[in-house]
Amino acid sequence: MICADLVERVTDYLEGLVGAEEAQRINAHLTICDDCTAYILQMRLAIRATADLAHVAPGSTVEDSLLKIYREWLRTTG
């Protein structure tokens, strides 16, 4: 496995979607290549940073307007 090929396999590797034989070749390469190891960490952190976008709290104005919707719904169903 060479670096330029490994970078194209990172997503499948991280998702556990590479076969046993390929996983072994990737792992073997990572033990000798600090740059690819660093690259995989970068991809992991990029994925984590993307996941963080879900954790932005809505503003209080948004919450207030949604509560109004909720109360209105309760009133009409209740």
Binding site: C3, A38, L41
Partner: peptide, 13 residues
């Protein structure tokens, strides 16, 4: 070394 990194990949750790 064709196909290997030409320069160091930054370490984000």
């Amino acid at each position: 070394d064709a196909g290997r990194w030409a320069s160091t990949v930054p370490d984000w750790s």
